[in-house]
Design a binder for these strands. Structure first.
Lengths: 240, 240
DNA sequence: CGAGACCTTGATTGTGCTCAAGAGCGGTGG
DNA sequence: CCACCGCTCTTGAGCACAATCAAGGTCTCG
């Protein structure tokens, strides 16, 4: 819960009292192994999940069962805050790695939102941030070449896995296989592999067995036409 | 403003008093000719725009100036409600046809949201609905073939242009050229043309000079793998 | 009736998919 | 300790969908 509040505080102001109210919510921990669904497509749940560890993929499912990912949720995210306010939202949440979550009652969240206008607005704002992530994913999968898609995603992850100073993290373990990257980006594993190799060969970054090491941050950003503005990270614009 | 409130009421409950509060907001009408931007990419505005007539495209812009559309906004939508709560959201709004809007002060909207928890929640919920549209657009542009993309979009428009009974509208004037459809779907105008022809040849729908006539609704839905659930339309699920 | 935007069709090219097969690594059990 | 299995990664060859380039046709409006 603390990590989630910290995330809210990046974009919203909450008083001590409001923070305490959030911290006072009852939560329950759950662990989901890689490959399993936190929430199956179309299912509903009375609990929202704050991610403590791991990577969660938000997907929509076609009639034939094929999954289309629309966003990745990382530690600190509340993966399904939006369903608090709109019940019949049909998306699924897949644990792309082993995942630990804190479950919070949506009814409790709503009650708090009713009591504190600032909390309501912080939640609202957080949902808008999710929208920006998804909108940027449209840009990524619809507007970029395969190589650019990968570069763009790596840049996004570098920022979102930033430890605390909002600087891109140049070395991290994403925990995803090339095949999963392909699923997320709408590419085949084979093609991801070729592009990852190219990105390595031009000296931008090395993706080796689920971990990533960025060698040329500016080059990678250029390659992926990446602009961190959509992440609403303070001071990110200064880094261009 | 009335159409916007009606849209809110589809998914949220508002008392007479709350509705009156919204109706009491001062608005100013503006007309934007086709091709012009309501809001240029990266710009900020103190006013939100309720669309009274026309089609507005929400886009992100790459460094080279190419536009990637993430959603279409139709009459009744508040195209940029989300920026009320998150200032530095960078997307643009392009009038894809001649457009009429009602401008409302974002400060006024926020003030109302602070006063009425229900209004705040209705706004929040409306933003989540936008997210669903965008998420579905991901599915469309990333998961479907060119022909399916067009079929899917036509299905979405049939629902969203529905007059009032939440039934799909089988005949409508979209006001968009094939080239614009291509821009929106990430296809070339040439290819849109070929696919539109195919859709006509198999007897699903006729797209003729900016207007659409759907001949085989079920077939078109199947072709586009369309499931109206994401539109949060009451009773839509009964229509499968 | 002419200009310009839009639609239509053909030929060629290229990106990324599909199918296929092999190599490296890690875990498990005999 | 080694053999085996499964998962991931790697590389190759051929193919398909949609882009690109190019040219002609049609509609609308001034």
């Amino acid at each position: 819960m603390r990590t989630f509040i910290d995330r809210l505080l990046v974009r919203s102001d909450l008083t001590e009292g409001e923070q305490l109210a959030l911290l006072g919510l009852h939560t329950r921990e759950a662990v989901i192994p890689a490959g399993r669904d936190l929430r199956r497509y179309g299912e509903q749940s009375d609990y929202a999940a704050i991610i403590s560890a791991g990577v969660v993929g938000r997907y929509h499912q076609a009639r034939d069962g094929r999954r289309n990912f629309v966003a990745m949720h990382l530690p600190g995210d509340m993966a399904d805050l939006c369903t608090t306010v709109l019940k019949d939202v049909s998306f699924g949440l897949e644990a792309m790695t082993d995942v630990t979550v804190e479950l919070v009652s949506k009814a409790d969240l709503l009650a708090l939102a009713h009591l504190h206008a600032a909390i309501s607005q912080a939640f609202w704002r957080d949902c808008v941030s999710d929208t920006l992530l998804i909108a940027q994913h449209v840009v990524r999968v619809a507007g970029l070449s395969a190589r650019q898609k990968i570069a763009h995603l790596l840049c996004e992850m570098a920022y979102r896995l930033s430890v605390s100073d909002h600087q891109p993290r140049l070395q991290f373990n994403l925990g995803l296989t090339q095949s999963q990257l392909g699923d997320f980006l709408g590419l085949t594993a084979v093609h991801v592999n070729r592009m990852v190799r190219e990105i390595r060969d031009i000296g931008l970054a090395v993706v080796d067995r689920r971990s990533v090491s960025i060698d040329d941050w500016d080059g990678l950003k250029r390659q992926g036409d990446f602009d961190p503005k959509y992440l609403s990270i303070p001071h990110a614009s200064e880094q261009i």
